[in-house]
Amino acid sequence: MANVPSRSNLFDDFFKEFAPGFFIKPLHGDPLPSASQIRIDVSESDAAYTVLAEVPGVGKEDIHVSIDGSVVTLRAEVKQQDKRAEGEKVLRSERYYGAVSRSFQLPQDIDQSAAKAKYDNGVLILTLPKKQASGSQRLTIE
């Protein structure tokens, strides 16, 4: 499909030509970020995977990580705090409220009991130890 301008872009473009740099639209919130906007870096060592995920502007209590075998799911709840002084009106607000999540699969199962998470300056750092594959076991025949 051809590039179809969104409603907000169409009006922004119109008013830029009409009154460049002057118009401020009174809308509340833009769409939530897509899952691909939680950017991640994954590295691997012999014993573990390390995941760095960008989750800026979210409190660590609002980040949830779940592990199911080799599938890791990151979920972040973004909360907007509306504070207005009496007599003040909002001309534009681009912050939003909602949740965004992203799941990805690693090549090997994760040892959930030894997994660790740390959040520092908008970056979530996951240390995900690999589950040791149980080797084959020879059964004794009775």
Score class of each variant (00 low, 15 high):
Y49E: 01
L128V: 05
D82K: 14
A99N: 04
S101Q: 08
N9L: 13
D12K: 14
P129L: 03
I67M: 00
L32R: 06
E61P: 05
G57A: 08
Q105V: 05
R138T: 12
Q112G: 09
T73N: 04
F15R: 05
S134M: 15
S103Y: 01
D62T: 02
D109F: 04
V58M: 02
M1C: 10
N121E: 13
E88M: 08
D111N: 10
P31F: 13
N3V: 14
H28A: 07
L74A: 00
V65Y: 03
F104N: 06
A19Y: 09
D109I: 03
V58S: 00
L128R: 01
P107Q: 14
L52N: 08
P129H: 03
R84F: 09
G57T: 07
H64Y: 10
F22L: 14
E44L: 00
N121S: 09
L27H: 10
A85E: 15
T50A: 04
D13M: 06
G29K: 00
P31I: 10
Q37F: 11
G87N: 03
K25M: 12
G98R: 03
Y119H: 04
I110Y: 00
Q108K: 14
F18S: 14
T73D: 01
E54L: 08
N121H: 12
V72D: 03
D46Q: 12
V90Q: 11
H28I: 07
I63T: 02
I38M: 01
I125F: 07
R92Y: 15
D12W: 07
A47N: 14
D46K: 13
A47D: 14
K79E: 04
A2S: 14
R75F: 07
G59R: 10
A47Q: 12
F104P: 02
K131D: 00
D120R: 06
E17M: 12
D120C: 04
I63R: 00
S136D: 13
G135S: 11
Q80Y: 13
Q80W: 10
L74V: 01
R7F: 15
V78A: 11
A53N: 03
G21W: 05
D30M: 12
F11N: 07
Q105R: 08
D120I: 09
T127F: 01
V4A: 08
V72G: 02
V42Y: 01
D12C: 07
P56R: 06
F15N: 09
S113W: 07
L126F: 04
D30V: 11
T73H: 02
N9G: 10
D12P: 05
K83L: 12
V55T: 04
V55I: 14
K131L: 08
L27M: 12
S6F: 08
N121L: 09
E88G: 04
V55E: 00
V100I: 11
D62V: 02
S134N: 12
A53W: 03
F11I: 12
Q112W: 07
Q81A: 15
I38T: 00
E54T: 12
A133C: 04
M1H: 12
V71I: 11
I110H: 01
V42L: 00
S6Y: 06
I125P: 01
S8D: 09
P56Q: 04
H64L: 09
E17D: 13
L128P: 02
A133M: 10
S70W: 05
P56C: 05
P20M: 08
